[in-house]
Design a protein around this nucleic acid. Sequence first.
DNA 1: GTCTATAATACGATAGAC
DNA 2: GTCTATCGTATTATAGAC
Lengths: 197, 197
Amino acid sequence: MGNSEQTFKKILEVAYVMFSENGFDKTSLSMIAKEVGISKPAIYYYFQSKDQLIEYLFEEIYKEIKLEITFNYTDISKDNLIQKLLEIGYMSIEQQEKDIHFNKIFNQYMLLASRDEKYMKRLLELQACFLDGFYDLLKYAVQIEAICDSNIKAKAHMLAMVYDNIGNFMLTGIELDYKEIWQEAVDSVFREQKGKI
Amino acid sequence: MGNSEQTFKKILEVAYVMFSENGFDKTSLSMIAKEVGISKPAIYYYFQSKDQLIEYLFEEIYKEIKLEITFNYTDISKDNLIQKLLEIGYMSIEQQEKDIHFNKIFNQYMLLASRDEKYMKRLLELQACFLDGFYDLLKYAVQIEAICDSNIKAKAHMLAMVYDNIGNFMLTGIELDYKEIWQEAVDSVFREQKGKI
DNA sequence: GTCTATAATACGATAGAC
DNA sequence: GTCTATCGTATTATAGAC
């Protein structure tokens, strides 16, 4: 790896951590440069502007999320479906215990999206992919007769909301039994329905 | 209402909307003053600093949330418990359809909390109150034999997470059947458990 | 109470040397 | 590629007149 590429990556790494800790506005390019060990104008050799640095970071995060929420169907059967679904949640919980910066910075992009069409468009893509992912998984479960076909869409979206919000709750530092909560959510989907209210 | 009090309230109202739309950092006191129809220094007659204005707004929002998540038990019976629980969610959904600013600004305080102990402390109070609220409600449901006592805590926290995240999803503008999702969540709690996985 | 004027500071970004 | 020096601008906040 050349010196140039090394500096480029270092800027991204430092920006990722500092933006997540202090927010975009409260993290100046001077602060980033100081932490990287270069001068402020040096950043402009790699990025046209602060906004472009923020945008570049977003695309990296976008790719990572896209990868995380794309489920692999090849090894799912009627016998291991529940276990697989549980593991999807467990993995997310464990990942977020390791990297607290990820969710923090992502929430900032969510706020950015509400006043910038460009980010909103990309986030809606992710969200649709995320919601459809759970929906498709439950539709597949119906197909292999692992679950009965009642209210599949609402069930899928409920799962997505629990899955998604666990990360937000973890961010506050409150210690809940997140795995048990996810277990309860998954369990409820596969629980037989006795009578409608 | 005196002129002074009127200006004070106007500043708060304008700040509430502008902060939620542009964020704290991207909303300057000049912008607020212009919208209110006064000069920037006039704001300093009512608030010591921008931070104090932000803090004052938080306390108002804190009170409102505290009120919203404090459930009323007096009229809950075995027969209407499910209906009451459903209505709790419906009310929240309808309220958020009306005031989109509320959740937007609240999310900003969540981010602020991650780098300011003062806000973190208050938000943890709210969150504990929120989670305990659902837990207490389900404990009460067990007491009046409207539900069996299995995994009550996880069920309550799952409900809380769905309830809470509906607002975040609504913020993105994605149109889901939120009432049906909440229905599914409530329904799942009262669904009979057949066998443990 | 509200104003005009201004201080003090920090930021994003650029110019130009090396 | 990276630096020093600097520009232009915006911000929070204050001083002091009315």
